[in-house]
């Protein structure tokens, strides 16, 4: 029986084959959901799905696309907003 704190489903189970031959369960943090566009809800590309400690060690340029609204809007919505702004 696992420890009571591990019986919640807030941690994810990872089955690992141990050198002794048995499989042991490792409990690990879950990753957050994939980033989505704030306008249309499409999945964003170029935004990594990593645990906070890994995100912290990453460069800013690796965490989102290098363009206006990068990491917030998808490229389609971004283009749409810019064109709308200049066309009025």
């Amino acid at each position: 029986m696992p420890a009571p704190r591990l019986r919640s489903r807030s941690l994810r189970k990872v089955f690992r084959r141990v050198p002794g031959g048995r499989t042991s369960i490792h409990y690990k943090r879950k990753k957050h959901k994939q980033a989505r566009c704030g306008n249309c809800g499409a999945l964003l590309k170029g935004v990594p799905r990593e645990l906070p400690y890994k995100m912290r060690s990453m460069a800013k340029t690796k965490k989102r696309p290098e363009r206006p609204f990068g990491g917030v809007l998808c490229s389609r919505c971004m283009r749409r907003t810019i064109i709308d702004k200049f066309r009025q």
């Binding site: 290098e66 363009r67 206006p68 490229s75 971004m78 283009r79 810019i82 064109i83 200049f86």
Partner: peptide, 10 residues
């Protein structure tokens, strides 16, 4: 013109 895509967008 206005660039619409890439890092020079806008």
């Amino acid at each position: 013109v206005v660039k619409v895509a890439g890092r020079d967008a806008g």
